[in-house]
């Protein structure tokens, strides 16, 4: 392993999509899916990326796996720059070390492959050991994800398994090549409620015993709270707030984070449905105004917010926020959601 404490270091990373230009008419603006983000992930820890759909979570995940080439910026993996001068062999090596866990288990697995074949495929691609060694590896991995007795699963096909079991196979398949880094994009959103907990617990356990560095992408903050030490909140391709998960959730400083947290429903019937302090959105990723990207939805926006884009800055609270008025808004305006209880009429 490299010298750095961080497995992932991202600096001003961008991914802009350029629409096909029509021959006549105005040039269309590029779609700024990821628009200059910076963060790093310590080895062996997990980070959650949250935000509304379209804010650039999946694109970020794909950049971290080099499934997209960045438009601009630096991405270091274990101290090595990935966005320039990589050899084919280095890329192939990276493809083993960095794995994606798919959202939809039904799309992730080849329906004509048995579970054994599905797990064997990545091992063959990465020329892992002899047939016998591979077999042992596969059995060991299926035990780790608790598909036991393993013999009863090896020769089954995807359609013979339940959604929860399939997602365990998908997890096993990502981990069978001993990666260092895992990106899980909405890992349980396709699963039935009664089995989600099992898959989440398993991911928590397996990633920690294997010492993996993990990125969880989810629009569900309660899930991120359950899984991640650090949290990044994205809005229209930018990071608006990042820091330790507890700090973000219980003392948010950015008005968008506050709205996002207040919107999370609680299973406690005594908690009141809160009013959200946020306007409807009119901005989109291909139509970004000057100033703060959140200006049109922000109840606190002032003149400067329409002129100057706020930078991500460290707060006294030990996390990072991009808001001109975070010191005034944070803490003062944010009431703990525990405080307001529902009244029954």
């Amino acid at each position: 392993m490299g010298q750095s404490d961080f497995l992932i270091e991202v600096e001003d990373l961008k991914k802009w999509f350029y629409p096909k230009q029509s021959l006549i008419g105005r040039r269309k603006a590029p779609l700024r899916a990821v628009d200059g983000i910076s963060f790093s992930i310590k080895k062996g820890t997990s980070i959650g990326i949250a935000g509304e759909s379209g804010c650039g979570k999946t694109t970020t995940g794909k950049l971290l796996l080099k499934l997209y080439d960045a438009t601009e910026g630096s991405f270091k993996f274990d101290g090595v720059e990935m966005n320039s001068g990589m050899t084919k062999q280095e890329l192939k090596d990276f493809r083993r070390k960095a794995q994606l866990m798919f959202q939809n288990p039904y799309e992730a697995l080849n329906p004509r492959y048995t579970i054994y074949q599905s797990l064997q495929e990545p091992l063959i691609i990465h020329k892992y050991g002899t047939k016998e060694v591979r077999r042992k590896k596969i059995i060991n991995m299926l035990e780790k994800v608790r598909l036991t007795p393993v013999e009863s699963y090896l020769h089954k096909f995807p359609h013979q398994l339940s959604g929860g079991q399939l997602q365990r196979v998908v997890l096993a398949r990502s981990l069978v090549v001993d990666p260092l880094f895992l990106v899980a994009d909405e890992p349980v959103s396709m699963l039935d409620v009664s089995v989600r907990a099992g898959v989440l617990n398993l991911m928590r356990e397996v990633t920690s015993t294997m010492g993996l560095t993990t990125v969880y992408i989810s629009h569900d903050l309660s899930l991120i709270k359950y899984l991640c030490e650090e949290t990044v909140i994205m809005y229209l391709g930018s990071i608006v707030e990042k820091g330790p998960t507890d700090k973000i959730l219980f003392s948010p400083m950015h008005p968008y984070t506050m709205a996002l947290i207040s919107a999370v429903p609680s299973s406690d019937p005594d908690v009141e449905l809160k009013e959200l302090n946020i306007n409807n959105s009119i901005t989109s990723a291909d139509n970004i105004p000057d100033g703060c990207k959140f200006q049109d939805r922000c109840p606190y926006a002032q003149e400067i917010c329409f002129k100057q884009e706020p930078l991500l800055q460290k707060t006294k609270n030990d996390h990072f926020v991009a808001c001109h008025f975070s010191e005034e808004i944070g803490g003062k305006q944010y009431e703990n959601r525990l405080c307001s209880t529902r009244s029954y009429g």
């Binding site: 409620v193 009664s194 989600r196 989440l200 959730l249 947290i261 609680s266």
Partner: peptide, 22 residues
């Protein structure tokens, strides 16, 4: 009882528990 164990909640720190079986 099982359903209320199975959901993550911002306000709770309990370990989630799934309802096994089908």
């Amino acid at each position: 009882m099982g359903l209320s164990n199975a959901f993550p909640d911002l306000l709770k720190n309990d370990k989630l528990i799934s309802i096994n079986g089908s």
